[in-house]
Amino acid sequence: MNKVQNNKAWFFILPVIFLVAFNAVIPLMTVVNYAFQETFNNNIFTWQGTKWFENILRSERFYAAFGRQLLFTFIILLIQIPLGVFIALSMPKKGFGVSICLVLMSMPLLIPWNVVGAMWNIFALPRIGFLGHYLALLGFDYNFTQSIYAAWFTVILMDVWHWTSLVVLLCYAGLCAIPDPFYQAAKIDGASRWAVFKYIELPKMKKVLTIAILLRFMDSFMIYTEPFVLTGGGPGNATAFLSIDLVKMALGQFDLGNAAAMSLVYFLIVLLLSWIFYSVVMKGEDK
């Protein structure tokens, strides 16, 4: 059969090209534009080369924010993943309890992020808010606007409350996909609860768990709204994570060159870490 040679195929991918262009490429390129040039009034640009990048990569401020960010993400994952798996395992598999649990679990996810921040701000107000009041009654000197530890504690507690459900829902979906005969077979073998978890549930949850960790990693690494509303990055710079620091630099100080360079570095870090994590976890999969 004779094949017709023409370029019609381009028409089919044109919509995608437009979509991706408007969605990703053009916004990214404006940032790139700022990252290599100096801007003045009237949109006059002068070429600066890699000056802004050198600035950023030499600044202590960036590394401090990056360190805080890593620590925050690490703690978040360390708490949310095991807790999420544990809650998913203890949720009922059938009966009316299922829908109750699912609704309860999805509640935090349905609340807008700035509302979560505002909610927790009021909830944790020293001596006035519910949490602040009872922590004070118990004898804790708790004030998240002044103490660094209290601020971190509150931000982490808020994030755990807000996002553990996502891990729970993903793991629960993974657990529900395990056919009942797997459990029967384990029962017939006389396997212990721990063995069932280790040899059946965990391997079967591997894929959803990877996705949960990836999502939670990216989300927590780019967290902005909730800590911004709750602590505003304070006290001092104690909870100024990368994105909060970035906004301070871009909009607070209007230091567009540095901010653009930092955005790009930030973007590349997220991309790199996600890629490393994904390829490490998926390595054993397609042998």
């Binding site: 056919p179 005969p181 797997f182 029967q184 077979a185 029962k187 017939i188 006389g190 040899y199 059946i200 965990l202 391997p203 079967k204």
Partner: peptide, 17 residues
């Protein structure tokens, strides 16, 4: 567990890992 039985199912049930 006390009865000495073995069972094979329609689905292929093995320990995945």
């Amino acid at each position: 567990q006390k009865r000495n039985v073995a069972m094979v199912y329609q689905q292929f049930i093995n320990y995945p890992s």
